[in-house]
Design a protein around this nucleic acid. Structure first.
Lengths: 114, 114
DNA sequence: TCATGACATCGACAGTAGTCGATATTGACA
DNA sequence: TGTCAATATCGACTACTGTCGATGTCATGA
């Protein structure tokens, strides 16, 4: 595995897809970022977090809606956090996840021509 | 695998990610669409096609730039075509691929809040 | 009609990713 | 300190995916 450790959203979306041919590196970074979004469970987690009161939710709030085990939900949240889409705030024994403002918009702009 | 045969862009991007929680079906469709984009070779193919003269390119033009075998390139082009991002026009013995107008924009809008 | 060139499909293989149960970790609290 | 509850990590398994070489298909042109 060729580790791309800190591939987060801001790094991956510097250039636009349709402007000029992507370099190999730019394509790898953007693909890595999009892979984080290319999973139904993670998309649902993002949308549930976004729709939660206060814009944040803890793992225990998310397990039941998506119908997956707690380790699996934790795994998906880690993927989204590493990709820069979610932030994690631990308060007491609970871990609250929230959307990182602008992260989705950056990916959006990397794709769209408009 | 629960086949989603005709998952193309237009079906997958009806709702926005951050508006309200995605249904299981909407999440599956959008994830399927995004999976088509979540690969460095396919992103490069898209960008090369977009930047080609006349907005289209044949397989023989694409094999060398991405450094992959002809069958592999053909496979990626099929994935992108099935997902609704590329159109295929066969003229003589050559197959010309072109961006489907608005396809990327639809995904872009499904992600962004703006 | 036959050979050739462009592309698609097939079959196989290796690497990757989603999932879970079991377990470790961490903080709260009695 | 010991217990409990919430999360994270680990190990394993299965399924999927990217890749290739071999082969099939089809249109062109001699």
């Amino acid at each position: 595995m060729t580790e791309i450790e800190l591939t987060d959203v801001s790094a991956a979306c510097a250039t636009s897809l349709v402007g000029e041919p992507l370099t190999e590196e730019a394509a790898a970074e953007l693909a890595h970022t999009m892979k984080a979004l290319a999973d139904p469970a993670r998309l649902r987690l993002l949308s549930i977090v976004a729709a939660s009161a206060g814009g944040e939710a803890c793992v225990c709030d998310l397990t039941e809606p998506v119908g997956l085990s707690q380790p699996t939900v934790s795994h998906h949240l880690k993927v989204l956090t590493d990709a820069g889409f979610l932030s994690r705030a631990k308060r007491g024994t609970l871990a609250y996840y929230a959307l990182v403002p602008g992260a989705l918009d950056r990916v959006s702009r990397a794709l769209g021509t408009a």
